[in-house]
C-alpha cells in the first residue's frame, strides 16, 4: 500500500496499522463514529516512541504511547487513563457480609495473561491512531 493511501485509511476510515505484514486492507468505515476497525499492515511504521492525543473516554481522559520496533507495535502504554478511586471513597455501599471482601491492592506475581477491564474505548483507539500516524511520518 502506498503511503498516501495509508494516510487516507488512517484518517478517514479510522483504521490504524499494527504489527503484522500479511493481512488485507480494511474496507472503509462509512460511519465516522463507528468503532475503529484496525488491521494489520507493517510497512511505513518507523521505529521509535510516539504519543497520541488525549481523548475523553467519558469517565476521564485517555492518552497512549506506542513503541514501534522493526515496523511493528511492540508496546502500547497508557499515559493517562480514568482514575477515580480517590474521589469515590465516600460512596456508601451495602455490605455483603457472607462473602469475602478485601481492599484491592497491586499484585506482583508473574502472569502470562492480563484480563479484566480493557483499554478498548474509542478514545484509546483514537489516541493510538494518532501515535501510529506520527510513526508513519
Amino acid at each position: 500500500m502506498r503511503l498516501i493511501s495509508k494516510f487516507a485509511t488512517l484518517l478517514f476510515s479510522s483504521a490504524a496499522l499494527i504489527s503484522h505484514a500479511s493481512a488485507a486492507t480494511v474496507p472503509a468505515v462509512t460511519d465516522p463514529q463507528a468503532t475503529p476497525d484496525l488491521t494489520a499492515q507493517a510497512a511505513a511504521l518507523h521505529d521509535g516512541t510516539f504519543i497520541g492525543g488525549s481523548y475523553d473516554a467519558y469517565y476521564g481522559m485517555v492518552q497512549v504511547q506506542a513503541t514501534i520496533k522493526k515496523g511493528s507495535i511492540v508496546n502500547v502504554k497508557a499515559l493517562k487513563f480514568p482514575n477515580h478511586s480517590g474521589t469515590s471513597r465516600a460512596i456508601n455501599r451495602q455490605a455483603l457480609p457472607y462473602l469475602l471482601q478485601e481492599v484491592v491492592s497491586a499484585q506482583n506475581a508473574k502472569v502470562q495473561i492480563i484480563g479484566g477491564a480493557t483499554l478498548t474505548s474509542r478514545a484509546y483507539i483514537r489516541s493510538l491512531r494518532d501515535a501510529l500516524v506520527l510513526s508513519s511520518k
Binding site: A57, Y59, G60, V62, K77, A78, F81, P82, N83, H84, S85, V104, S105, A106, Q107, A109, V111, Q112, I113, I114, G115, G116, A117, T118, L119, T120, S121, Y124
Partner: peptide
C-alpha cells in the same frame, strides 16, 4: 492470569490460574 485494576491501568489486583476455564470481565469505567 492477572486481573487488571479498574483504577490504575498498569496494575494487577488479583492473580488467578485458569485450568481450561474462561474468564470474562464487565466494566463500566472505560
Amino acid at each position: 492470569v492477572g486481573i487488571r485494576s479498574p483504577f490504575v491501568m498498569d496494575q494487577i489486583i488479583k492473580v488467578v490460574t485458569l485450568r481450561g476455564q474462561g474468564m470474562a470481565t464487565s466494566g463500566n469505567y472505560i
